[in-house]
């Protein structure tokens, strides 16, 4: 029986946890400060939702691996940069994802996603900065014989923040489509890189592919569960990424037709 309140937030300290509890910021109680920062860090990386004690226990009970926010001391300030990977079966910390890897992976699981994507227009090789407003995701597992693959469908809605192509004319529809393609390619690249790191280096499923599998193939899952780590690291992923630019910012607009 757990008498401790299960709503406590779990964080992993890099280095001594003791030191982090001793920070002094504006006379605030260290824990409160820590929680404030944890809640208010910028959403660019696709914030990890906070892991409470209850969730951690549930993950352990169902032997799912998961990510926990990790905190470290940077001089006199706390810094949230990396994410700890916890193996649900061994119930152990097996490594840390750096900022970039985390950002790439967050496309797979983050409930809220913000931030910007910097891509280059293949034609002009100029920078197009896109900011994410909304994300729709669908992960569809597929089992063909023993081969397991995942279809990841993403629909990213957002706006252009910065356009280095400096369109002299007003926006053309094609110009937007081009930008959309460029952003999608960039996102795909990010996802693929970080996923392959995860699959090869850590061999742990922290992006809830297992859940999708359990829902889709509940019977097979009973057996797959035991060796999911291996299966996961071998699984192939098909990407289908659509970017929808809803807003071009303040520059440009639709081309005026001459006859109107």
């Amino acid at each position: 029986m757990i008498i401790i309140r299960a709503s406590c937030v779990v964080l992993i300290a890099k280095g001594q946890a003791k030191d982090i509890f001793e920070i002094k910021v504006d006379n605030e109680i260290p824990v409160n400060h820590l929680l404030d920062v944890a809640n208010n860090q910028d959403k660019d990386r696709g914030t990890l939702s906070e892991v409470t004690l209850q969730k951690m226990l549930d993950h352990f009970a169902s032997e799912e691996s998961f990510l926990v926010q990790s905190v470290m001391l940077d001089g006199k300030k706390v810094k949230f940069e990396e994410a700890a990977i916890i193996d649900g079966k061994k119930k152990k910390l097996i490594g840390f994802l750096n900022d970039k890897e985390l950002e790439g992976l967050s496309w797979f699981f983050a409930k809220e996603k913000g931030g910007t994507v910097v891509s280059r227009d293949p034609k002009t090789n100029q920078m197009v900065v896109f900011s994410v407003k909304k994300l729709e995701r669908e992960i569809q597992p597929k089992m063909q014989g023993k081969r397991i693959s995942f279809d990841v469908k993403l629909k990213v809605i957002g706006q252009i923040e910065e356009d280095r192509r400096y369109p002299k004319q007003n926006f053309e529809l094609s110009s937007i489509q081009q930008a959309e393609k460029a952003v999608a390619a960039e996102i795909k690249k990010k996802m693929m890189t970080s996923l392959s790191t995860l699959q090869s280096k850590y061999k742990t499923d922290v992006i809830q592919f297992g859940t999708a599998m359990r829902i889709q193939y509940p019977r097979q899952w009973q057996q797959l569960k035991q060796r999911w780590e291996e299966e996961f690291s071998q699984a192939s992923v098909n990407y289908d990424i659509k970017v929808d630019i809803r807003n071009y910012g303040t520059i440009g607009g639709r081309k005026q037709k001459s006859d109107s």
């Binding site: 709503s7 549930d58 169902s62």
Partner: peptide
Amino acid sequence: LSVEGVSIRIFPTIDFIRSYEIEGLLFER
């Protein structure tokens, strides 16, 4: 709480209520 989470708790309903806090209301718990 998920299937496994429910199965390991003696009183899952209490544990469920204990695992959230709502800030901004008079009570949190």
